[in-house]
Design a protein around this nucleic acid. Structure first.
Lengths: 134, 134
DNA sequence: GATTGACCCCGTAGCAGCTACAGGGTGCAG
DNA sequence: CTGCACCCTGTAGCTGCTACGGGGTCAATC
């Protein structure tokens, strides 16, 4: 691979991404098809490194692929104002808040369940009883 | 359908489950294959109603299918002590705790991001900048 | 008795976001 | 020149459903 380009494995290492995942992103059009070497190996440049890093970071923050697609589109229309970006982030934050409260409710129910364990026999298990219909 | 048995649609209604989901549970062996009427319709009894209610309740509490399979197996060995049930529930609780703290971290990062929006042009968008590699 | 509509059957494919093969080709070090 | 690490494509798998397409059945109404 030439001085200024990365093979898929190197790109993978640099972005802490699975090789298969990179090919997957290409297949779904999230990453552009890169140049190829004479041996048909993918040859990535700095642009792709930057783009993939962005994608991975956004994934870490829990943005979906479609949200990321939108963010990347927005990032390219540099004259627009950034309210749309803010709105996307806000919407995502709202989703997270709602997941958080679901999980908190769930935790409470589970804690209640577990609190009832008296280390007896299955036949008397309060956890199973609590799960069973009344 | 006879007096004491339910068609799949009735079972679905009674347990607030999608008909397709019931057939899916049967396919993966979570529900047993029920008797059939002469017209080859599934005919469910009380046992299946109870079992499916249990499954749905456990799903609501976020147990995976495999965890539920284990719980159902345990429930059938009524002489064992119920520490295993407790352990399963504890493990599930631990997973929830860890998801909760991931989500809280994520929320903080997103809030920080959003706090930086100055309603300017995309070219100066701090949110996009924060997502981009350094 | 024919028609309508709501129900049932089966099998398969789709969703997200990867991951993991199988069955090959390439590049380089010893 | 042999071995190994890497690369290629294409397809199937994962979880937990959901949604079809193309049929059969049942009960009521006309």
């Amino acid at each position: 691979m030439s001085e200024r380009s990365l093979a898929i494995g190197a790109l993978a290492k640099a972005t802490d991404t699975n090789v298969e995942t990179i090919r997957y992103y290409e297949r779904i059009g999230l990453l552009p098809e890169p140049k190829r070497t004479s041996a048909n190996y993918r040859a990535y440049g700095q642009d792709e490194l930057v783009r993939l890093s962005f994608i991975r970071r956004a994934r870490e923050l829990g943005f979906t692929i479609e949200q990321i697609r939108a963010l990347l589109d927005l990032a390219n229309s540099r004259d627009n104002d950034c309210c749309t970006v803010d709105a996307l982030a806000q919407a995502h934050l709202a989703e997270i808040e709602s997941k958080l409260s679901d999980l908190r409710a769930l935790r409470r129910e589970l804690r209640d369940l577990i609190g009832q364990c008296q280390r007896g026999k299955i036949a008397d298990c309060q956890i199973l009883a609590a799960l069973s219909p009344r």
